[in-house]
Every structure is written in structure tokens, then in C-alpha cells.
Simulated scan of single mutants.
Amino acid sequence: MAKFDIRPDIDAAAERLSNTVGSKREINKLPEVLWEGETVDMLATGIYGKGNGLIAMTSMRLIFLKHGVMSQQIEDFPYSKISSVQWQGGMIFGTLTVYASGNKAEIKQIPKENGKALADKLRMHLAQGSTPGAASAPASAVPGQDIGSRLATLDQLRAAGAITDAEYQDRRAKILDSL
């Protein structure tokens, strides 16, 4: 696996990628497109529009970045504008469909393990009404979701690799403290 020395959050997310082929340039350019205070939570590779690029799930938005020699493409989806996401996995790759502000964006050829984890984590944050970098919502702020289902969702995210063991323990403690 390629090693990067960009920023701790980007380096950690890049280390979890199953493959960085075709995305090294985008990983190196990622700090240039991030907003002040924005941190990277997860990365994946995929094809959107006319090329292969990088998908970054940050503390504020979902970004698709393609930085080629002749052209660049940046498309972002602020979490407040995303209404839902859909993951369709195949044997090796899958497609992430993002529904935002009445539009539909399909990012294809995402490696299955990275794409499913990203979709699961994004779906969890949308359901909780929080952004990935924000603290977990208290139980009373998650309508229709009891403690048992929140713990089950948390277990699924850890099993899918969408969150680390440390994040799991921290969020589990917060859920149990809300009792």
C-alpha cells in the first residue's frame, strides 16, 4: 500500500483504502479542495462522469475529486442536501448512488469493501441527522430509534469496517450513557 505524508486524517483514511491505483494524484491534491476545519473521515475510489477519481467523506460533505493532467473535476454533496444514498454491490465493485436536492449521482466501480463501508457510515449519519465529524446525537434526538437498534447499527458499522474499534467503544459508551 502506498504511504502518504499529507495530513494525519488523510493519511489514516488512505491507509484504509484497498487500492490507491489511479487516485494518488487526487489524494495529494485533496488538501487544496478541503474547507478550513474540514477533516477527512473515509476515502474510496470510483468512476463518476468522465473519469476515475477519489471519493472523500469529510466532516462536512461528500466530495468526488478527479485531478487529471488535462482536466479537473470536483463535485461535492453537502450532507444537509443529501436525502438518501443507495449501495449496490457486485462481486468486486459496486455503485454508490447519492440523491441530493432532487438530483441523482452515480459513482461506479467502487471497490466493494470501501464502498459498502462508506455507504453504511454515510447512511448512519443521515439517519442520525448528524455529520460524520460531529458527535453522535443523543438518544432523544434520534426519533423512532431505540437504544437496541442504535447498538445494533453500531455493531454493523464496526463489522463492516466503517468505524474503528476506538470509535465503536466511544459511541457505544455515549449510547449507554444516554439511558
Rank of each mutant, 00 (worst) to 15 (best):
D165Q: 15
M91C: 03
L126Y: 09
S140Q: 03
R16W: 11
A14H: 01
P31I: 15
D41N: 08
Q86I: 11
A162G: 13
G133C: 10
E38F: 04
S130D: 11
N52R: 11
K116G: 05
K3V: 10
G133P: 02
D120S: 15
P138H: 02
N103S: 09
A44R: 01
L96S: 01
L176G: 07
Q72N: 15
I47S: 07
A117R: 07
A127G: 08
L154E: 05
S23N: 04
M60W: 02
P138W: 05
D9T: 07
T58V: 04
D11R: 09
Y48A: 10
A2C: 08
E167Y: 08
M60R: 07
A173G: 07
R25S: 13
D170T: 08
L154V: 05
I92R: 07
P132K: 04
G133E: 03
S23L: 08
M1K: 06
I110D: 02
L30F: 07
K104L: 09
L154I: 14
V21S: 14
P8D: 09
T39E: 11
T153A: 12
E26W: 06
A119W: 11
V21K: 14
G46W: 02
I107P: 01
I107R: 06
A105C: 08
L157V: 10
W87K: 09
R150L: 15
M70K: 13
M42G: 00
A152G: 02
V98P: 08
P138I: 02
A159M: 01
Y99M: 15
G90D: 05
I92N: 05
Y79Q: 15
A135K: 01
K29G: 00
V85A: 07
V69Y: 09
L151T: 03
A139I: 08
T45I: 01
Y79S: 14
Y48T: 02
E32G: 10
H125E: 03
I55M: 08
G133D: 04
D165K: 12
I82P: 05
I74R: 10
P138R: 01
V21G: 14
L151W: 05
Q109P: 00
L34H: 03
G51I: 07
M60Y: 06
V21A: 14
I147K: 12
A166T: 12
K50D: 14
N114D: 15
K174G: 06
E26R: 11
W87N: 13
F64G: 00
I107Q: 06
L65T: 06
R25D: 13
R172F: 12
L43F: 11
S101R: 10
L62S: 08
I47F: 13
V142K: 04
K50L: 12
T153S: 10
V142H: 01
D120V: 02
D146H: 05
R171M: 12
G51N: 09
F4Q: 05
F77E: 04
R16L: 15
